[in-house]
Design a protein around this nucleic acid. Structure first.
Lengths: 201, 201
DNA sequence: AATTATATTGACCGACGATCAATTTCAATG
DNA sequence: CATTGAAATTGATCGTCGGTCAATATAATT
């Protein structure tokens, strides 16, 4: 019951997050508990409350890291390759990443904060960053001045992608339906639709 | 500690579901507990286990009822009014219903079963029914023989709608972005895209 | 060496989901 | 109407949970 100095505070934080990630990946958010995390790193549950505000805060950090992984996976996509190609590549990596991190991805949208509490800015920034990718991908379809419309359409695409991935990872798609083909349809329909609607508005 | 016969088994079930709905609507899934439900109907927690398998089962019933409400709200949409009109009306009611039942809707996609357990058929039927609506709405864009493609595109639309509604009810949309305009963009882009892509495949 | 600050813990709180023997009532039987 | 058997309801109870805190042992500072 004292200072151990086996690990620095940052090390401890990383260890806790890693342990929690492992649990979520294997058993989902349901299986996550402070006691399990603590057992995983050889400390007592109380120590976690020195690293994180509470379990919600810890989960938010996990989710931020999950989004960071997705951002990283999309980092070197050629956004100037044309709307179809760029969006398709983004969507492909999105689905691939989500598929390889089902449990963690589920946690992103299964988690919700208690009644009054609001998501922190540093988490929202992650989704804003992902939105920016989609926005740049479809930029050729818009005038420079149409920033609002560009953002709006990117938001629609992002939300749609989100829906497809969410249903897929939660196992709520009928058998025979794959998220890969779904996002492909989404992208092609959306881009074709944007082209034709913006040609004759 | 005995048979009361104040209420029939069905009455009790309805009361329990109503009490649970009230809690979810006000405090979300987090606030739901067997003890709170039991207190809400003046019975002990143990009694609930005679009406439902466990708390998960109860939540699944709640979610089924929530989906039934949406189905009911979409019941009299004129699906033969053309793809754009039909889909837009469906989407409008979808967003309206979800907006009026935020907590309950959140529960639909926040809830997940423990590791091995699978969603019951009677719940999947609900989503299949909603999928059928979208499928009929876009039917004019397909040949009779293209059943697979029709179902596939309906599934994409349904999942996209789902994503928009999910982000909206979870408060994860940026300010200034409304789900109403988003679904309108989605529908118009998708239909226009389908038209143009199917004209020149 | 003495003092201050801080990290860590075990014990503890209230609440949770779930189970079950005990008990009381209802329904069926004679 | 009396007896029996089935069913429903409960309180007690188990193990677990998130979270708090005084006690304590170590590290840092003087």
């Amino acid at each position: 019951m004292a200072r151990r100095s086996d690990h620095s505070r940052d090390e401890l934080t990383r260890m806790a997050l890693a342990a929690a990630r492992k649990i979520i990946a294997k058993q989902g958010l349901r299986g996550l508990s402070t006691r399990q995390i603590a057992a995983g790193i050889g400390y007592s549950p109380g120590t976690l409350y020195q690293l994180f505000e509470d379990l919600d805060d810890l989960i938010l950090h996990i989710n931020a890291a999950t989004l960071d992984g997705l951002i990283e996976a999309c980092r070197d996509v050629d956004l100037a390759a044309g709307p179809e190609a760029a969006l398709e590549e983004l969507a492909r990596r999105y689905i691939s990443y989500v598929g390889n991190n089902r449990g963690l991805w589920n946690a992103v949208f299964e988690h919700s904060l208690p009644e009054g509490r609001i998501a922190p800015d540093w988490l929202r920034e992650r989704t804003r960053s992902l939105l920016g990718l989609a926005e740049r991908a479809i930029a050729p379809l818009f005038q420079e001045s149409e920033e609002a419309a560009r953002r709006h359409e990117a938001q629609v695409l992002w939300a749609s992608l989100y829906g497809i991935a969410a249903l897929a990872t939660a196992g709520k798609l009928p058998p025979g339906e794959s998220p890969e083909t779904m996002v492909q349809s989404l992208v092609q329909n959306s881009v074709a639709g944007l082209r034709s609607r913006r040609a004759r508005p």
